[in-house]
């Protein structure tokens, strides 16, 4: 009888263990499918549910909060999805939360995502219809990808042409193959460096100069900062100004003088007036010059007569021969 009891208790433990596991299994599945516990319904209306079926998970901000209860066709373009959501989520989900259809992983089951909105809105109530957001479908993505691929092909062709041109360009390859180029470049850089060093020195010299000027050293400094020199300069300038004034008065005197001379010429005083303005004198002068001309003509006639005179003919011939002689050697040469 004792043995009987032991075997019965063992049997009891065995059966209870088996049943417990079954119950656990069923409970876990039931819990996942929201069969137990408090739930409430929410609805959303889509144009295309992309394969969503009853039992798919519903997530609020990524947290599992319920399942899809059923998918009803309302009319030819509208499909209503009824969700069972845990009651405790009622204090978080608001009326403007957006429902979208997503995929669990890359190839996984469809899921409904409820995303909270940042704008304020009252909390949801049972059987509310939430707004929906259209998500990218695989087909649409592939279509976009096809267009992108075409663009990429065009870009690749252009890139290929560019590379070909670079490859065929002798100038670029000359530059690339030139082994002396790095040395030159290095030398240039060294020059730039020394130039920079010199510039730095120059700048420091300039700085020193400027500071000297500021401190009043040197002539420029004296100009800028010596007050005595400034006074001297001022005096010099005032003198120059006075000289200018004197020159003005001198010019006036000269002008007056010229005016007087003009007056004298106009009103007949002195020899200048006689020469310029006296017509009698001018006539006399003309006559004198005519007389002179006549006298000169007479003299010429006398000279011609003399040439023909035998007394003087020998002399003139001698003169002519002398002239001929002077021309001859020039010809002979």
């Amino acid at each position: 009888m004792t043995r009987q009891f032991v075997s019965n208790s063992k049997l009891g433990v065995f059966v209870i263990a088996g049943m417990l596991f079954l119950i656990l299994l069923l409970y876990m599945i039931g819990k996942n499918e929201n069969m137990f516990g408090n739930t409430f319904r929410l609805r959303a209306q889509f144009g295309n549910v992309q394969g969503l079926t009853a039992g798919n998970n519903v997530r609020y901000a990524g947290i599992q909060v319920g399942t899809v209860k059923k998918v009803n066709i309302l009319n030819d373009t509208l499909i209503e999805v009824v969700m069972l959501i845990e009651t405790k989520m009622k204090q978080y989900i608001r009326k403007n939360a957006v429902v979208s259809i997503g995929t669990d992983g890359l190839m996984g089951n469809r899921v409904l995502n409820i995303s909270p909105s940042v704008k304020p809105a009252p909390l949801v109530e049972t059987n509310d219809i939430l707004p929906v957001k259209k998500t990218a479908e695989m087909d649409e993505m592939l279509q976009t990808l096809a267009r992108t691929n075409e663009d990429v092909a065009v870009i690749a062709t252009q890139l290929k042409n560019t590379v070909n041109r670079i490859n065929n360009s002798a100038a670029v390859w000359d530059i690339l193959n030139d082994k002396s180029l790095p040395q030159h470049f290095r030398a240039s850089l060294l020059n730039v460096r020394s130039a920079t060093a010199k510039t730095v020195r120059l700048v420091s010299d300039l700085q020193l100069l400027v500071s000297n000027v500021k401190e009043g050293k040197g002539s420029l400094g004296a100009i800028i900062s010596d007050s005595a020199l400034a006074l001297g300069l001022q005096e010099a300038i005032s003198r120059i100004s006075r000289v200018g004034e004197d020159a003005d008065s001198l010019a006036q005197v000269i002008s007056t003088l010229a005016g007087n001379i003009q007056y004298d010429i106009e009103n007949g005083r002195g020899p200048a007036r006689a020469i310029l303005k006296d017509s009698v004198l001018a006539e006399n002068l003309q006559l004198s010059i005519q007389n002179l001309q006549k006298g000169t003509e007479g003299f010429n006639a006398i000279m011609e007569a003399l040439k023909h005179n035998f007394l003087f003919r020998g002399y003139f011939r001698k003169l002519e021969k002398q002239k001929e002689k002077d021309k001859q050697p020039a010809r002979g040469q």
């Binding site: 299994l25 069923l26 876990m28 599945i29 996942n32 499918e33 039992g55």
Partner: peptide
Amino acid sequence: VFDNLSFGDV
């Protein structure tokens, strides 16, 4: 394991 099981399996 349990997320992927359903009553239809058990």
